[in-house]
């Protein structure tokens, strides 16, 4: 199965059961993402973008299919092992920032490192380094509610970066931001990619999708060619 791809999905499907109704959120997805690649996932609302990202981020298990991450099958892992891999290999950036209100900027960024058992000294180094990269090192002791939306998202990016993950998964990272802040966050992602980061970003904004090297189009839970997506 080893072929050098960072991520490999084989026939991934996801079915939700609600009120005895089966909803096929994803249907036979085949996908590969190479190390250092910047991929965007585009498609209309409800096409399965966020579900795909949740599966890539090991937040959800697929109903069927195989998921290989860095050459390791992860679709068969238990909850605790998935959490461990998520902590080490994956960095999340959410549309709603999802910072924890009770924690300071520093503590928010530090959080994934504490779950990994990194020593306090090492944590401090990594947190400061990540906050420096996103230009938020001067707001260490602030709480999320004291920051603007753009600043909160920068902190969220720093949190995703701090653990030096294999891939950054960004779910509509500009969805809650004005255009100036959106551009700023996209510039930051481009910089990270230029620095070697692998990024998979869900967006429905074509302007930002174009910043990626490659765009995967989803429609009704299936990957469709770009030409067909345009027609749809």
């Amino acid at each position: 199965m080893e072929n050098g791809a960072l991520i490999r999905l084989l026939g991934i499907s996801k079915v939700f059961l609600t009120d005895e109704v089966e909803t096929h959120a994803l249907d036979q997805i085949h996908l590969e993402i190479q190390q250092g690649e910047f991929v965007s996932v585009a498609g209309p609302s409800g096409c399965g973008k966020s579900t795909l990202l949740s599966i890539l981020g090991l937040l959800e298990a697929p109903t069927s299919g195989q998921y290989w991450l860095k050459g390791t099958p992860v679709h068969t892992l238990g909850v605790a092992e998935r959490a461990r891999i998520r902590n080490r290999e994956i960095g999340f950036i959410f549309q709603a920032f999802n910072l924890i209100g009770d924690l300071t900027v520093y503590e928010n960024v530090e959080l994934p490192l504490t779950y990994r058992g990194v020593s306090a000294g090492e944590r401090k180094k990594l947190v400061l380094e990540a906050l420096e990269r996103v230009g938020m090192a001067h707001r260490l002791k602030h709480y999320p509610s004291q920051l603007s939306g753009g600043q909160q998202q920068r902190v969220a990016v720093a949190r995703a970066l701090a653990g030096k993950p294999s891939i950054l998964l960004a779910d509509e990272p500009t969805g809650n931001l004005d255009s100036a802040n959106s551009d700023s966050v996209m510039d930051l992602l481009s910089e990270l990619h230029a620095g070697g980061s692998t990024i998979c970003m869900v967006t429905h904004d074509p302007r930002f999708a174009r910043r990626a090297q490659r765009t995967i189009h989803l429609f009704d839970g299936r990957v469709v060619p770009a030409s067909q997506a345009a027609a749809l």
């Binding site: 981020g57 937040l59 909850v79 605790a80 959490a83 461990r84 998520r86 902590n87 080490r88 999340f92 959410f94 999802n98 910072l99 924890i100 209100g101 009770d102 959080l111 994934p112 779950y115 990994r116 949190r159 653990g163």
Partner: peptide
């Protein structure tokens, strides 16, 4: 918050 913590790698045990 708990969802966020889990997304960041907290195991159920944690």
């Amino acid at each position: 918050d708990i969802g966020i913590r889990m997304a960041l790698g907290a195991t159920p045990g944690m």
